[in-house]
Amino acid sequence: MLKITDLKVNYGGIEAVKGISFDVPEGKIVTLIGANGAGKSTILKSISGIVKPSSGRIEFLGTDITSKDAAFIVGKGVTLVPEGRKIFPDLTVLENLRIGAYMRRDDLTEDLDWVYGLFPRLKERAWQAGGTLSGGEQQMLAVARALMSRPKLIMMDEPSLGLAPLIVRGIFDIMREINKRGVTILLVEQNANMALQAADFAYVMETGRITMSGTGNELLNNPAVKAAYLGT
């Protein structure tokens, strides 16, 4: 579905991504794990068009989306849940969701029902300003907002960041639920344990390169991954 070939990205004066290639097959959960500064977030930003890569090719469903505008890419069906949630604090929950559906001109009732079904808490708080939600609720809102664009591929950047373990578990459950509905997921995580358990396929990144890959289970049991990322 998403095919990345030899991608290089310069970000903040350094070469953050040094020529990587990987695939995200349709209907799967794929995860990129790795330490801080490995270039994971930069990859997501360049797929979504916020950062322009210096070379390489990004292909989505056969269309070349390399260096296209973010609006074009969202229109194609690729949506990013940014790191640190980045909800709009002064807009109400409902307004946040409507901005998520910005690229669409059709009726939103059905989608609102769907995301309210996934996150009943958001329905209760529809009229509250986004900034007044708790961290976990804000993460729910960020995911729900991304879903409002009806993405074929949803990319999540560190959804577990700064959340309590119980809430993180909830977010991962929802992720599987969304995936069952046919949305492909590309997940970037530092919480390698949770990410590998959820993922069909995983890549390990180190300083701008992919150093290992395999199914989630394979990597969970890989001694090198265990030592470096799982702390066991």
């Binding site: 979504s48 916020i50 973010a70 609006a71 890419i73 969202v74 229109g75 949506t79 990013l80 940014p82 980045k86 909800i87 709009f88 604090p89 002064d90 807009l91 307004e95 901005i99 998520g100 910005y102 690229m103 907002r145 991304a146 664009s149």
Partner: peptide, 14 residues
């Protein structure tokens, strides 16, 4: 208002 609140996030929404 979305742009005012968070330009990057607005861009990510298309």
């Amino acid at each position: 208002r979305a742009i005012r609140d968070d330009e990057r996030a607005a861009e990510a929404m298309g």
